[in-house]
Computed example of a mutant assay.
Amino acid sequence: MLGRSIGALSFGPRRVPCVLGAGGISLHKQEGDETTPAGLHRLRRVLYRADRLGAPPDCSLPREPIAPGDGWCDDVTHRDYNRPVRLPHDGRHERLWRNDGLYDLMAVLAYNDDPPQRGLGSAIFLHVAQADEAPTAGCVAVSLPDLRWLLQTGLEAIEVPPG
Rank of each mutant, 00 (worst) to 15 (best):
G3E: 12
G3K: 06
R4E: 13
S5E: 07
I6D: 15
A8G: 12
L9N: 03
S10N: 09
S10F: 14
S10A: 15
F11N: 04
G12E: 13
P13S: 09
C18Q: 02
G21L: 09
G21W: 03
G23E: 04
L27M: 14
K29M: 09
E31D: 08
G32I: 10
D33F: 08
T35V: 13
P37C: 01
A38D: 05
A38I: 09
G39S: 09
L40P: 10
H41V: 11
H41E: 10
R42P: 14
L43E: 02
L47Y: 06
L47H: 06
L47N: 01
R49F: 07
A50H: 13
G54A: 10
P56R: 12
D58W: 11
D58F: 13
D58S: 13
C59S: 06
C59L: 06
L61W: 09
P62T: 05
P62M: 02
R63K: 15
E64W: 14
P68E: 05
D74T: 07
D74L: 01
D74R: 02
D75R: 12
R79D: 15
D80V: 07
D80C: 10
N82W: 04
V85F: 00
P88V: 04
D90L: 12
G91V: 10
H93T: 08
E94Y: 03
R95F: 14
N99T: 15
D100K: 10
D100V: 15
L102Y: 06
Y103K: 04
L105C: 08
L105V: 14
M106F: 14
M106Q: 08
A110P: 13
Y111G: 05
N112P: 10
N112G: 05
D113Y: 05
D114V: 13
P115Y: 00
Q117S: 12
L120W: 06
G121M: 02
G121E: 01
A123L: 11
F125R: 00
A129Y: 03
Q130V: 11
A134M: 11
T136Y: 02
A137Q: 11
G138L: 01
A141I: 11
V142S: 00
S143D: 09
L147M: 12
W149H: 07
L150K: 00
L151I: 10
L151P: 03
Q152S: 13
Q152A: 15
T153G: 12
T153F: 03
G154M: 12
G154V: 15
L155R: 00
I158Y: 00
E159G: 06
V160P: 01
P161T: 04
